[in-house]
Computed example of a mutant assay.
Amino acid sequence: MKKNKYSAEHSNKAWLFLAPALAAILIFSVYPMIRTFIMALQSNDILNPKFVGLENFPIVLKDPIFRRAMLNTLIYSVTVVPLSIIISMFIALVLNTNIIGNKFFETIFFIPYLTSVIAIGIVFRYLLNGNYGFVNYILGFVGIGPIDFLNNPDYNMLATIIFGVWQSLAFNIIVILAGLRSIDKSYYKVAEMFGASSWEQFKKITLPELKSILTFLFLTSFISAFKIYNSVFALFNGRAGVGNKLMTAVFYIYNKFYVEYRYGQAMAAGVILFLFLLVLTFIQKKIIERIGR
Rank of each mutant, 00 (worst) to 15 (best):
I111T: 13
I162V: 09
N244K: 12
K204S: 06
F171H: 06
V242Y: 07
L278V: 03
I283H: 00
I174S: 08
A225F: 01
A69V: 13
I287E: 00
I173Q: 01
L210D: 00
V81W: 01
R125L: 08
R262N: 14
F251A: 06
T160C: 13
K62G: 10
I122T: 08
N152R: 12
G195P: 02
I223R: 00
L278G: 11
N151T: 11
T97A: 06
N136Y: 12
F163S: 04
N129V: 08
F236L: 08
S77G: 13
L169M: 09
F276C: 13
T107Y: 09
I27D: 03
A268V: 10
F90Q: 05
V165F: 03
Y113I: 02
A8M: 09
Q201P: 06
G101I: 10
L74P: 04
I85M: 03
L74V: 15
L22K: 09
F57Q: 12
R125M: 15
Y188D: 02
E55Y: 11
L150E: 07
Y188Q: 02
F37Y: 10
F110S: 02
A14W: 12
S224A: 15
K211W: 00
N56A: 14
T107A: 14
I122E: 03
I38V: 12
F236E: 03
Y252V: 14
W15V: 06
F194A: 05
F216N: 00
L275N: 11
N172R: 03
V190F: 06
A196C: 12
N131F: 06
I25G: 03
I27E: 08
T107G: 13
A14V: 12
N4H: 11
L26E: 05
A225L: 01
Y31A: 13
M1P: 09
K245Q: 12
I91E: 05
Q284K: 01
F233P: 04
S231D: 15
N237F: 08
A19S: 14
L41N: 10
V165S: 02
Y137C: 07
Y261L: 11
L280V: 02
S88C: 03
I173P: 02
D154F: 09
K285V: 01
K62M: 15
I46Y: 08
W199L: 14
F124Y: 13
M33Q: 08
S116T: 14
V94H: 05
Q167W: 10
I253P: 01
F124L: 15
Y261H: 10
L277N: 07
A21H: 12
I287A: 00
L18M: 15
V259G: 02
L16R: 10
F105H: 04
A170V: 09
S11M: 08
K256C: 14
Q284D: 01
P20K: 15
L278T: 15
T97D: 04
F28S: 07
K5D: 13
A69E: 04
F163T: 03
N131W: 07
G143L: 13
K50I: 10
L61E: 08
F66G: 01
I228H: 08
T79E: 07
N129C: 12
L139E: 05
V30D: 05
N156E: 15
V232M: 09
A159F: 03
R125F: 07
V259C: 04
I161H: 05
S182R: 10
K13Q: 10
L180M: 07
I86H: 03
N44D: 14
S231C: 06
G53H: 07
G143N: 12
A178R: 04
F216M: 03
